[in-house]
Design a protein around this nucleic acid. Structure first.
Lengths: 235, 235
DNA sequence: AATGAGGGATTGTTGAACAATTCGTCAATA
DNA sequence: TATTGACGAATTGTTCAACAATCCCTCATT
């Protein structure tokens, strides 16, 4: 290895691309396909996924397919019942309450951590939040409700950035993926997120001003409202 | 199904034992064996786990063993490198910082949630904390440092109960399991937890008095101290 | 209506096989 | 000497076929 005396850095930067060029295992690619199907609302909750059928349809062996199932089961998108098979996760009111309890802790915790966050990281986080808010607003004016939903997801994922913690990021990703399962059981999932755009805008204002405690409280109120709205659907 | 008119309840209670009597899959049992080996500090971080060797040693097929590896990889106890195999997780200083960032959010978040927690749940949580503190103290007087460590783990797991959230519980379990990997690289892992017994006792006092904000701040200070102590070992 | 005995279908697990990839070795080269 | 490239052994990735274990539905029995 030629330790390049001062052409420093650019070799290390290549490491960042390692994941993208990555040979993904077959199991992971299959999981990607199924994950998309599930989070997009096809494959309704409760659907049983037959090893033989899906394996044949996707052209992979049962063993490899079972590996994919494990990946998705760990993300809680599938549930694995011993000797019975895997099913698309079906959530109930308690799950919704738990998901929002977890979100309150993660997201508000991230914002309360913001005072300790590195200046640079904090700035990029604020920008990510701003971008999500603006994307949501412009999508709303175009009546593109699907994009409003994804922008809202991006908003909360950006909130998690203030924790400056990869594990918080990942936990947030998993929670939001699970929540997609919830949205699909609603009557009008398309317009669910629209009313919260103004909340997002207000929270962004707090963040831009460095008023993280105010932002956390506004966020908590938002989460309480969204939770009770969703729980009402499930009971 | 005979809906027993008023012998109510005891049938449902049986459901709690379902997990214990549960037929566990071979993969899960194998994972249990390996998990114990890893968290107890045998199988040092970085060790490569050969599919053939371990499969032969435990008497399971490669396919089943690979399933066990996936389980443990999801718990972050193993890392899976494509086409290279699985290795016992090796943590660095950044991992330690991240783990403690996550813990601060989870544990302090749980305590700040306590004011909203159901009275009954809160009481049992306080009792669980008290039990962990007393177990730790009695183990310390007997010089049983291993039990002091497990009692300390139980203490923090009990803290998570205040969140009243299964997902927080599970996240906490995973974090603590990962942290076990950290403790083993220290010079004297046995006595690491002992100085924190007094902190635990003080925090318990706050919780018993219902002063959750004070408890959260004491806990945050505890976590900061433990983090810097551990990070120092890794750098 | 509850119980119990088939029987078909599906999952759990195994073992073997082959392809793809990594890694160490060693010779060739500048 | 240090770098490069080729070769080969060992390991993982994936598939396939088979059998055991289990679930679930049906039907006969009581």
């Amino acid at each position: 290895m030629t330790t390049n005396e001062r052409g420093i850095g650019w070799v290390e930067e290549l490491g960042a691309e390692r994941a993208s060029l990555g040979r993904a295992s077959t199991a992971r690619r299959v999981a990607d396909v199924l994950r998309a199907r599930i989070t997009e609302g096809r494959l309704p909750p409760g659907t049983r996924l037959s090893e033989e059928d899906i394996g044949a349809a996707l052209g992979v062996s049962r063993n490899t397919l079972r590996e994919s199932f494990r990946l998705l089961a760990h993300e809680r998108l599938l549930v694995h019942e011993f000797n019975r098979g895997v099913f698309v996760r079906k959530l109930d009111a308690d799950d919704v309450r738990d998901l929002y309890a977890f979100r309150r802790i993660l997201e508000c915790g991230a914002l309360r951590h913001a005072t300790r966050t590195d200046e640079a990281v904090r700035r990029t986080a604020v920008e990510a939040v701003r971008r999500a808010v603006e994307d949501g607003e412009s999508s709303a004016t175009q009546g593109n409700w699907v994009d409003v939903g994804t922008a809202n997801m991006a908003f909360h994922q950006a909130i998690a950035l203030f924790a400056q913690s990869p594990r918080v990021d990942e936990a947030m990703r998993h929670v939001l993926a699970e929540l997609r399962l919830v949205f699909h059981v609603m009557a009008a999932p398309q317009t669910f997120h629209e009313p919260y755009l103004t909340d997002n805008r207000r929270i962004l204002g707090h963040l831009a001003d460095g008023e993280f405690e105010a932002a956390a409280q506004a966020l908590a109120a938002y989460l309480d409202a969204a939770e009770s709205q969703l729980v009402a659907v499930f009971e």
